[in-house]
């Protein structure tokens, strides 16, 4: 996804419907698609989303292959926080408040500064939680909001067709 599309998404309208989503888990697939199409967030404010998106982009960076940003992991995390990970909301709000005491805008920092800051908070609950959620967002099925275009699955050679015949790998060929 190009940068202007991402910026459009982050600038999208603020969301409603968190309660609806919570009530309808795990039928959030359709909701995830809608939210992305609208660039809407259910839990985060747009500035919060920009900060978390920037952290996720360092946890799983864009290299010669897509990273968390292209995989739209921020939408996965946003939905997670009103569904299966609702108990982690405080970890995020507290973590973001702490982050604000360290930098005016994490997203606006140069990459080297971002990495240095994250190294300093690696042991916190906040960072560990964002790390785990970023990775889940890379490798959970796309209908949960991340893994856009199966970007994560492609990178680790995972075929989700759920129906295989042996041989499966390089060593069990007849």
């Amino acid at each position: 996804m190009n940068d202007s599309r991402r910026n459009f998404l982050l600038k999208g309208f603020s969301a409603s419907g968190a309660a609806w989503l919570a009530a309808n888990w795990p039928r959030q697939a359709a909701a995830a698609e809608k939210a992305q199409a609208m660039g809407a967030f259910t839990f985060f404010t747009r500035p919060q989303a920009a900060e978390i998106d920037a952290i996720a982009a360092q946890v799983y960076p864009t290299t010669d292959t897509p990273g968390a940003r292209e995989a739209q992991v921020i939408y996965f995390i946003d939905l997670a926080l009103v569904t299966f990970a609702a108990d982690k909301q405080k970890v995020y709000t507290d973590g973001l408040a702490d982050l604000a005491t360290r930098t005016k805008s994490f997203a606006a920092m140069p990459a080297a500064g971002q990495v240095a800051l994250l190294n300093g908070i690696q042991a916190t609950d906040f960072f560990k939680t964002v790390r785990d959620h970023t990775i889940m967002g890379m490798f959970a099925a796309p209908w949960h909001g991340g893994n856009f275009g199966k970007a994560g699955w492609r990178q680790i050679g995972y075929d989700d067709s759920l129906n295989f015949r042996a041989p499966f790998g390089a060593y069990d060929q007849a």
Binding site: P61, R131, T134, Q155, Y158
Partner: peptide
């Protein structure tokens, strides 16, 4: 456990 080196190794060791 995160960052560019994590990603590189994750992809290299996959499967």
């Amino acid at each position: 456990s995160w960052g560019a080196d994590y990603k590189k190794a994750l992809i290299e060791q996959a499967n």
